[in-house]
Design a protein around this nucleic acid. Structure first.
Lengths: 237, 237
DNA sequence: CAGTGGTCTAGACCACTGA
DNA sequence: CAGTGGTCTAGACCACTGA
């Protein structure tokens, strides 16, 4: 029938239920209206209410059991989106001056503990780079990165005057799978020198491992001075 | 026609496209088959391929433009689920012994800087609790929490021998909206004493603010010794 | 058995885009 | 204008649940 004019019927049903949940009209675990009831109430076809319900289910707001019914979900999960944010974009989006200092970039033999995560044998050649990202002349992040040469053979030649290692690698090897850890620790003495902080300053350290099309691409350690960096997230159904 | 037996047709279309994306059959930004082409290729109705495509879009794997076509997405975002994990559940799921030490729980006047986030006026009465969570007799998390009395009037009487503040609050005031920050910092002297760590040890500090049905519920600071705690995440489309 | 959700179809009207 | 995606419908068959 109609299309994006105003709110589509499926979306009206969806918003109606969402608001009811927000208001607590259905306690967590409570039985909600069936598809047939919503069809009667809104005067739309079953496929339309089905879409509304399927989307609410995908968002984790309701649970559905075939043969039984639809229930308000227990909201225990915060689903928040952690972007692989490029430091250049991030800093420039704040209206600050961005600078990148390439401290090291060369081929090195990869250490035994890192090799498997890069899909390489211990001692095999890999690319190693160390970059410091600045916001208004203040070091904001130290990026210590290993790259699988098979995934980005020309990494050593990449020009970082207008791009960043993150951006370059996303371009040549689209990210498909990733894991990360976030921890608090003190920086190494070398890290501290690069970041111009005391070696006792707590740092937020993100370690990220990226795979593209089944090939490990890069293993990166991102060190942020605790006093200058914060991760934020927000969740709203 | 069929139902959950084997793979539903919409899911076959979806998996086919997903695998093509994983293999790099379509570079990011490249034009993908239209709905009409997929209808012909799979011999299913348009609604069926439409569902497959809509779900891939919701997962961020493709982008669709009305009047133009369907395109392989640039994969820049890691969407990972950060749970409000209950420490008791977390520790016990690892097969470890869980203990809770209630250090403080009382009514207090809320500080001016915290009051607005709890929906209260500066100096109004709020509930304040401090709890230490143990894993095998090792302090794993310090939980310093303020609670809006309007959202959980009986918080001071809750029995924490079989539940936790998190669990109790999720039960009485289903979480609807939340924000959090994650940072690295040194603990306060008091925090360090409770956690039995040196005041110089870097800690991972999560500050979380929760709203239920428009009412602020709780503001909590979770302090984790950096040497004992790590946040992990994984992403795969 | 009645009621529930899971899924599919064949057709429809529409808005939007770019040639 | 042809091609694209956005959405809806009325009907269908099915599996599952619990009385």
């Amino acid at each position: 029938m109609k299309t994006s004019t105003a709110t589509a019927p499926y979306n009206q049903v969806k918003m109606h239920l969402k608001q009811g949940l927000a208001e607590g009209r259905w306690e967590p675990g409570a039985l909600m209206p069936s598809e047939a009831e919503l069809v009667a109430q809104f005067g739309v076809s079953r496929m339309t209410v089905n879409r509304a319900l399927r989307e609410l289910q995908a968002e984790g707001l309701i649970e559905r059991v075939q043969g039984v019914g639809t229930f308000a979900a227990q909201l225990h999960k915060i689903s928040s989106t952690l972007s692989i944010r490029d430091m250049r974009e991030h800093v420039e989006s704040l209206g600050r001056k961005y600078q990148l200092d390439l401290k090291l970039r060369r081929e090195e033999a990869v250490a035994a503990k890192m090799a498997p995560r890069l899909g390489l044998k211990a001692g095999a050649a890999a690319f190693h780079s160390v970059v410091v990202h600045f916001e208004d002349d203040v070091p904001l992040q130290l990026e210590d990165r290993w790259v699988n040469p098979a995934a980005a053979p020309r990494y050593l030649e990449a020009d970082f005057s207008n791009t960043t290692p993150t951006q370059y690698l996303l371009d040549v090897a689209p990210m498909w799978e990733a894991s990360y850890t976030i921890e608090a620790a003190t920086p190494s003495r070398q890290d501290a020198r690069y970041l111009k902080i005391q070696p006792t300053e707590p740092c937020l350290i993100i370690t990220r491992w990226t795979v593209s099309r089944g090939t490990p691409v890069t293993l990166v350690r991102l060190v942020h001075p605790g006093s200058r960096y914060l991760l934020e997230g927000h969740f709203q159904p």
